[in-house]
């Protein structure tokens, strides 16, 4: 699975971190970091992360 976050849209709300902590995280300054090729077993939580992104900045490709 390939995850793409539009970093021009992302405003570091961190809702994705709560939904999919294995894929998304906030660094000490509160800025988003993420795994762009997570295991397919994590699909459900990544889909949820995409749903709850306030900026709708997360896209799942295949």
């Amino acid at each position: 699975m390939k995850v793409v976050v539009d970093m021009n849209k992302c405003q570091d709300h961190g809702q994705c971190v709560f939904a999919a902590p294995d894929v998304f995280s906030l660094d000490d300054a509160g800025h988003l970091a993420y795994v762009s090729d997570p295991d397919d077993a994590l699909r459900e939580e990544v889909e949820e992360a995409a749903d709850v992104c306030p900026l709708q900045a997360i896209r799942i490709e295949v």
Binding site: D12, G14, V17, F18, L26, A29, G30, H31
Partner: peptide, 12 residues
């Protein structure tokens, strides 16, 4: 700013 917003999340 962003740093304090992120600190709120630590209480979640």
């Amino acid at each position: 700013g962003q740093a304090v917003a992120a600190s709120a999340a630590r209480y979640r």
